[in-house]
């Protein structure tokens, strides 16, 4: 079972995983003066810009408060996008390590995804006070955050394993994903409401796994209601299939990593 031996090695190399995540987080802002604070400042500035723009300049957006509406969907989208994109290059970017030392290479995409997750969670530290400031009352529905973020992470890992391994053999993969994400952003209800989509396209629209996830986050962080668990469950099943197949494909391709890098 690939998944079992994966967890065994994961456990044995847990210290390395921790260090890789740590390195990922620290090198991102290394040599900058305020360092790790950037993790907070980026989403904070984003929030300020959106609030200013939509409440002063482009007033009359139908949804209020629009900045929360946007922000609570944008943070998980950024997690999705940076998680997949940085892990896609994680094997190629660590060629030095992969070519020279034995270790379970599966750790590399995992570590980059986990580092993106940490950044996302830190972003929530901005979102939650903002909720209060804008008068949005959080209720018990936030407990669904845990299953939603787990489903999302599984989905991201599924993409990461496939793409990071393929990118070793075809370096275009990293560029193609960049293009795809730009388009993908617009077919996900991050900036607008789902209701904008004509009903005849809704079925198709829901095939985008990020749609149920985005809607679920908005349910708990903006509307204070229980998310649609049915559609979330479908994403979970799809995500698991993607991740297990990705892991298997990764382990098969891994044997030729050192030669191809």
């Amino acid at each position: 079972m690939p998944i079992l031996s994966f967890f065994r090695e994961l456990y044995r190399y847990r210290e390395m995983l921790k260090n890789l995540i740590n390195r990922e987080l620290r090198t991102r802002y290394k040599a900058s003066v305020i360092g790790f604070l950037w993790t907070f400042i980026n989403p904070l500035i984003m929030l300020v810009v959106y609030t200013t723009f939509f409440s002063i300049i482009a007033r009359g957006a139908a949804i209020q408060p629009y900045s929360i509406f946007l922000f609570c969907a944008l943070l998980p989208w950024i997690y999705f996008q940076t998680g997949v994109q940085t892990s896609t290059v994680s094997i190629v970017g660590n060629a030095n390590l992969v070519k020279k030392v034995y270790f379970p290479n599966e750790l590399l995409p995992l570590a980059t995804v986990m580092a993106s997750l940490v950044n996302y969670l830190l972003g929530l530290l901005i979102l939650i006070p903002a909720d209060f400031i804008f008068g949005v009352h959080l209720n018990f529905s936030v407990v669904f955050f845990v299953p939603i973020v787990i489903v999302q992470s599984i989905l991201i890992l599924g993409f990461s394993y496939w793409l990071s391994a393929l990118n070793v053999f075809f370096r275009d993969v990293e560029h193609i994903t960049g293009v795809i994400f730009t388009a993908w952003f617009y077919i996900t209800p991050v900036m607008y409401q789902m209701e904008l989509i004509p009903p005849e396209y809704r079925g198709l629209y829901m095939l985008n796994p990020m749609t149920p996830i985005t809607l679920a986050y908005r349910d708990i962080f903006l509307y204070g209601r229980i998310p649609d668990l049915g559609s979330l469950f479908k994403v979970a099943v799809g995500g698991c299939i993607l991740m297990i197949s990705g892991l298997m494909a990764f382990r098969k391709m891994r044997k030729r990593f050192a030669e191809e890098l």
Binding site: R14, E15, N19, K30, F103
Partner: peptide, 23 residues
């Protein structure tokens, strides 16, 4: 392999040893 030039010797010991699978 895996040494990070910006990290101290101490930090690199912990990183490098963990690559060898030490806890």
């Amino acid at each position: 392999a895996g040494f990070h030039p910006e990290f101290t010797g101490r930090e690199n010991i912990f990183m490098n040893a963990s690559i060898f699978g030490l806890t």
